[in-house]
Write a protein that binds this DNA or RNA. Structure first.
Length: 994
RNA sequence: GCUGGCGUAGCUAAGCUUGGCCAAAAGCGACGGACUCAAGAUCCGUUCUCGUAGGAGUUCCCAGGUUCAAAUCCUGGCGCCAGCACCA
């Protein structure tokens, strides 16, 4: 299973397909196809895709979205628009750092991957440097894009770590600050006490473990001891303070004093450490827990007095090392109470107060049974799940989770002052009130331990002056929301989803102090701009980048004054730039902007696209705001996202083998046909191979059609034969559909028409004897150009090198439209009649057991045509579609008098309701001679199609002797009655076949 | 948990926005036939069940509902997938 040799020789891509494709790629490059030229007066189209991060090597799953972009760009180019399709690399952030560190430790997969790209052992050390690694990977991406036939503007290629790009980013942030879009406020960030700021993410670049940890925020409520000191109890459910029966502290060990704002609190040692990092203050004396035995504390809000008890339930490492006990709603507390001596237990159980109701009808059926029977919710859950005791951790945890979830989602408070509110609301209000009245502090904690590469435990530290992009700003948000309606968003579902996503958007940290690649923050160079934040407005920079590539602009000239002028027209511009050049840059920007389409994978729905809109809207005037977004889904592996393992394990072929086996066009066609772009498609090697075969088949069919074609379009002669008229008409109609599909970026629909339907139609035309060379040339020429966006190499290959030299590349030709082939409505109508007859005969034969030999078609009598017209007219005039009324209409016509006896039977052949609904849309029936000529012309086809020896066409009136079973009464205008003649009985011989 | 998506014949996958022409496109597979010494390819046909007359029955995850009419709309359920913030 590993080579083209397995396939059928003449349909597999030829063994040198990659080489042939590279020839055409070279021709496109030489022809400067990708280089956009600002051409005032000419329509333009600017398209970008969310540039990839530099995390590793490309696989065939990535290429789906990119080739969609290329096909869109090619289509617009062929429509005569000036297409600007740049591409770049997002080198900022951690991925390149991770990659280079893998090189540094000579990670096997990474080194093998590099070897495939021709990197030798001795050059590896160079790639241990993150920036070099990023640039190298960027070049591999560009190469892969080219190998897939993508034509982009190389002069705009950039990486986000280039010095000129950094100038652009600096300007952007200065500008955003000037416009009040940057705000400073506290933030809580992962921090290693030894190594400094670290990043907690799944790739674990900085970490030894804990990459999936999340930051959980507890509210630590303060309970007052009689001596005035306070105990901090961390909780995720502050609203349950209204049901506290007691406090729990660890069974042994000690607490420490933590002093803050003149108050003294008792917390565990680990809790104090967190508070020092996140809040400040200082620690004081150590307090052994046994010294607290028998103490009473006063709860905030309720001022009720509750005892302080020790329990093994409390883990001093979690939260603040003390918790409040709410037995009615916390299964662990309920169970802990059961394990106390009876004298203590009874009053506490009596005090357990139910704070909320759980309406059964709102609970999922599976949860309903959990909350049945006696006692508070925690007790019900403990009983139903059979929790044995505190040591039964598994069941206890399940009980806890299910109670918390149900109460959070569906609980309604029954205590004042929150009576009637949802638990969710009450929780937020209690937390807010507690903080503002100094009844509580917030404590943040990782959901699992996070260990730095250096071995130290990562903590959460408060950063008092973090910079944020003010995406929560109401006015800004409304501008973004308002602009959505003016955009084309693919798929439209995403357009509908965006307002909700914007609601959820809040201020977003824009800078970080970490060891990653990026641009230093101009306002304070100790900070580095965050990687999402540096890639929001970049499409605009591609335009400027071309001048840097051409060495007409120097990095030092890219000052804030320069960008202010180029992007906004404000200020005098940069004095060191020649005014004419400055004008030219400005003009190019105004020519190519606004951006027509930005493509990105589905993960960008909440990550890239919203900030992309926010920043454009903040930085540019409304006419330059983006016009379109296209979100695509991915090719996945069997188990989800394609991973390195899939490629290594052979589940997904590496890019080079895929290209060698199926060619870029085979893959491009596969992507287009596999599914709509708005859905994941599981990689299917067989389907891909079939798509590649289909591409070759199209080449085989297309080539001969082009014999003798000199220019891309020729005069399309008018056609006299019925078959040719039909074929021309269906191709006309198909091209119209293809055009619409491309305008909607619906490449699947376009590909089905062009690579599946059109070959079938062509075969049918030929199979019925069609061979008009002019018509075939016109069809071939249109077909050639129509397939060029999706399978560009194939189109060029069919066109050939010689014609490419003389006439030009297909990639530059005019995209075909329906007007290139004449359409003949009556030919289509005739064909539709034959189609329906074909269906009727097929369904008849289905029930026909013995082999059919002869078929008679009875063409409806002329009076039936008149009757049908009369009925239509009556129905259109408002007559109700019932037998009686229609008969009345028929009786009114003198000419029908002789046939009134047969009329009711005739009417019963119709679905009258249906006839009424179509009365206005369908055409009048043909005269019987005309209809008969249609059937006569179809006879050879019908004989062939159904293997009939003889097909006779007979007028109903003259068919009496040929119709022993009286079938001919069934004849309707346009739908002849059918009579299958039973073969003569030949008991011992099989009936002869035609 | 939140947000979004998905569940269609043996498989892949259209259709669902705008209910009816839907036993439901297309491709694959399977089966039959033509061609061939033969295989492959190609071409033609069949592919839910029943039916010697163009028909009937039962279907689009499940259960209800709306409607003259539901794959399509509504409600509920079950199952699967993705993203969830400073990370590209």
């Amino acid at each position: 299973m590993d080579g083209p040799a397995d396939g059928p020789a003449h349909l597999s891509p030829p063994p040198d397909i990659g080489a042939r494709e590279r020839v055409w790629q070279g021709r496109w490059r030489e022809a400067g196809l990708g280089r956009a030229v600002a051409s005032p007066g000419r329509p333009k189209f600017m398209i970008v895709f969310a540039y990839p991060g530099t995390s590793g090597f490309m696989h065939i799953g990535h290429m789906r979205g990119y080739t969609v972009a290329d096909a869109i760009a090619r289509y617009h180019r062929m429509k005569g628009e000036e297409v600007f399709f740049p591409g770049g690399i997002h080198a900022s952030g951690l991925p390149a750092v991770t990659f280079s560190s893998k090189v540094a430790r000579r990670d096997t997969d990474t080194v093998e991957g590099l070897q495939l790209w021709g990197v030798e052992e001795k050059d590896l050390s160079r790639l241990e440097e993150p920036e070099a690694a990023a640039r190298f990977l960027g070049e591999t991406y560009w190469t892969v894009w080219e190998r897939f036939g993508m034509v982009m503007d190389r002069s705009a290629y950039l990486t986000t770590i280039d010095p000129d790009y950094r100038q652009f980013i600096r300007w952007q942030f200065l500008r955003l600050q000037k416009r009040g879009r940057l705000v400073q406020k506290p933030y809580y960030a992962p921090f290693c006490p030894r190594s400094g700021p670290v990043s907690v993410d799944a790739s674990e670049t900085d970490l030894d473990r804990g990459g999936n940890a999340e930051i959980v925020t507890y509210t630590a409520l303060a309970f007052r001891l009689t001596d005035g000191r306070r105990i901090l109890c961390a909780t995720l459910r502050p609203e349950t303070v209204y049901g506290v029966t007691n406090l729990w502290v660890p069974a042994e060990g000690s607490l420490v004093e933590w002093k803050h704002h003149g108050e003294t609190y008792l917390v565990s040692e680990a809790g104090a450490a967190k508070l020092l990092e996140q809040v400040g203050g200082e620690t004081g004396a150590t307090v052994p827990v046994d010294s607290l035995e028998g103490e009473q504390v006063v709860a905030p809000f309720t001022n009720s007095q509750v005892p302080l008890l020790r329990s093994a339930l409390v883990d001093p490492m979690v939260g603040t090392g003390a918790v409040m006990s709410v037995p009615a709603h916390a299964p662990a507390d309920w169970v802990a109470l059961q394990e106390l001596p009876e004298s203590r237990k009874a009053p506490l159980i009596a005090a357990a107060k139910v704070l909320l109701t759980l309406p059964a009808q709102r609970l999922a059926p599976s949860e309903r049974e959990l909350f049945q029977g006696e006692g508070p919710p925690a007790a019900q859950a403990v009983r139903h799940l059979g929790v044995k005791g505190l040591s039964d951790t598994e069941r206890l945890q399940e009980a806890t989770e299910r109670v918390y979830r149900a109460e959070h989602a569906h609980g309604e408070m029954t205590v004042d002052p929150y009576r009637g509110q949802s638990v969710e609301e009450a929780r937020a209000r209690v937390a807010e009130a507690a903080i503002s009245h100094e009844h509580a502090v917030e404590v943040r904690e990782f959901s699992e331990p996070v260990i730095c590469r250096c071995g130290e435990k990562v903590v959460i530290r408060r950063i008092p002056d973090q910079w944020f992009l003010a995406y929560g700003d109401r006015g800004w948000k409304e501008q973004v929301r308002g602009h959505l309606e003016a955009m084309r968003i693919f798929p439209s579902d995403y357009g509908a989803e965006l307002p909700g996503i914007l609601d959820w958007f809040e201020d977003r940290p824009a800078v970080r102090q970490g060891k990653w690649l990026g641009t230093p923050f101009p306002q304070d160079p100790r900070w580095i701009i965050e990687p999402i934040a540096d890639s929001t407005f970049y499409p605009a920079y591609y335009i400027v980048r071309r001048f840097v590539w051409d060495r007409r602009l120097k990095v030092e000239q890219l000052t804030p004054a320069f960008f202010d002028y180029v992007f906004t027209g404000e200020g005098p511009g940069e004095p060191s730039v020649d005014p004419a050049l400055l004008e030219e840059v400005r003009r190019e920007f105004l020519y190519f902007y606004p951006l027509d389409l930005n493509l990105g994978g589905k993960e960008h729905k909440r990550v890239h696209f919203p900030p992309f809109l926010y920043n454009h809207i903040a930085l540019l005037p409304a006419p330059l705001w983006p016009k379109g977004i296209f979100v695509h889904w991915w090719i996945t592996g069997r188990t989800g996202k394609i991973s390195k393992k899939d490629v290594k394990g052979g589940a997904v072929p590496p890019v080079d083998r895929a290209l060698a086996s199926w060619g870029a066009d085979g893959l491009r066609l596969y992507y287009a046909l596999a599914a709509t772009p708005f859905q994941d498609a599981e990689w299917d090697e067989e389907a891909c191979a079939r798509a590649a075969e289909r591409a070759q088949e199209v080449l085989k069919l297309l080539g001969p059609l082009l014999d003798g074609v000199q220019g891309f379009t020729g005069p399309s002669a008018s056609l006299s034969d019925h078959l040719g008229r039909w074929f021309s008409s269906v191709v006309h109609e198909l091209l119209a559909r293809v055009r619409l599909a491309f305008d909607d970026n619906d490449h699947r629909r376009a590909a089905e028409a062009l690579y599946v339907e059109l070959p079938t139609l062509l075969r049918r035309y030929r199979g019925r004897g069609g061979a008009d060379p002019n018509l075939l040339r016109s069809v071939g020429s249109a077909w050639l150009r129509a397939i060029a966006p999706i399978t560009p190499h194939l189109a060029e290959e069919a066109w050939g090198e010689e014609r490419a030299r003389k006439v030009g590349l297909v990639a530059r030709a005019q995209f075909p439209g329906p007007e290139e082939l004449p359409t003949y409505p009556e030919a289509m109508a005739r064909e539709a009649l034959v189609d329906r007859l074909e269906e009727d005969i097929a369904s008849l034969l289905k029930a026909w057991k013995s082999p059919a030999t002869e078929l008679r078609l009875f063409v409806a009598a002329d009076w039936k045509r008149m009757a049908e017209s009369t009925m239509r007219a009556a129905l259109q005039g408002g007559t109700s579609p019932d037998l009686g009324n229609l008969m009345k209409a028929l009786r009114a016509r003198e000419e029908l008098k002789p046939h009134l006896g047969e009329a009711p039977g005739f009417l019963k052949l119709y679905d009258l309701r249906e006839l009424a609904s179509e009365a206005s849309t369908t055409t009048e029936p043909l005269a019987s001679e005309q209809e008969a000529s249609v059937w006569k012309a179809a006879v050879p086809f019908l004989r062939e199609r159904f293997g009939l020896m003889e097909v006779q066409v007979v007028q109903e009136e003259r068919g009496k002797d040929l119709d022993p079973r009286g079938r001919r009464q069934r004849a309707r205008p346009g739908r002849p009655a059918l009579y299958l003649v039973e073969p003569a009985p030949t008991p011992d011989a099989r009936p002869p076949r035609g």
